[in-house]
Amino acid sequence: MATGTVRFWAAARAAAGKSEQAYDGATLGSVVDALGAEHGPELARILGHCSFLVDGARVGRDFQLSQGEVIEVLPPFAGG
């Protein structure tokens, strides 16, 4: 298990009601699932469409978290 910080952006921030919080988990997927369970169906729905950065690199659900990493939750981009 590792602990670190989750940073929410845009729609995910609005649904979570905060810009960041602490996490405790072994993989990205387990942390994402826990966030959905904690914050309810709207954030869970949004998380299903997000991409994730860990310390700045895009990673998938199987990614093994290390102590002190920052997870960023990025909803779909919509520039222009």
């Binding site: 845009a10 779909p76 919509a78 520039g79």
Partner: peptide, 17 residues
């Protein structure tokens, strides 16, 4: 970049979701 729209009827949405 993210886009958040507010509509005349008071509703809102995040574009692309």
């Amino acid at each position: 970049i993210w886009k958040h729209q507010t509509f005349g009827d008071g509703s809102d949405e995040w574009v692309g979701l």
